[in-house]
Amino acid sequence: MALLRTREIEHLYSTASCAVVLSEVSKQYGQKEAIAPLSLTINPGERVAFLGPSGGGKTTLLRILSGQLESSTGTVLLCDRDLAKMPTGREVSQLVGMIHQQFDLVPNLSALQNVLAGQLGEWSLLKSLVSLVWPLNRCIGLSALARVGVEGIAYQRAGSLSGGEQQRVAIARLLVQNPQVILADEPVSSLDPARAGEVLQLLVSIADEAGKTLVASMHSVELAREHFSRLIGLRNGAVIFDLPSHEVTEDMLHDLYDLKGLRAEA
């Protein structure tokens, strides 16, 4: 048991490094071009934030990277593998995991069960059914909850938790899923500023200690500057700038969010 426990916990912190390479990726919805053909390389272990006005293409790009959305043209390489050619959702889930603004936990299950659901892709149907009644692999779930600082709420219903706690549980689920690349779609936009800073700090430090690549879309420029090493400005589906955080100037940000020339959103 002791051996198993250490092995399970090690699994949470296994280091990895994985690059994300987009070449000529575009996305069209009918006539509308959500993403103009764009190419970029995100290096292993890098922390990148997409900035830009709503409808600029941040979320669309993240959904393409997560495999939820197919790009119209171009290829996405995750860890040198073509995302479009991966046969099952299970394989994709080992490479890339995503957290959302609205946390997306199952409200009627306990925090622990939500966290353990990170392994659903690997469990047999029988094991997942048993675990629904009597959570299996508790250790790994509890240590993930401890890592994000909320081990005390393991047996509470996810729906009864505060926003900050729910987002921590979602991060713990991601720890258990253990993908190589972490995507975060406006991960702290629905939290108050104090909570937002803490949760973001947590996300970044988890990505750092496991050497994971972190790609996020960010609403707040200040938080993005503080926590990410590279900022990419997206506007009308095109890259406006792609620079280390400290090289991004106020003028560039002003141009990025300027209302003039913004395509009207439906």
Binding site: M98, V106, L132
Partner: peptide, 21 residues
């Protein structure tokens, strides 16, 4: 739909999404 989608993104099949979501 959103919580189901996030279960699917852990690689879960529709059967597991049914039981867990």
């Amino acid at each position: 739909e959103a919580p189901l989608q996030s279960l699917r993104s852990t690689g879960a099949s529709e059967w597991r999404v049914f039981w867990y979501g």
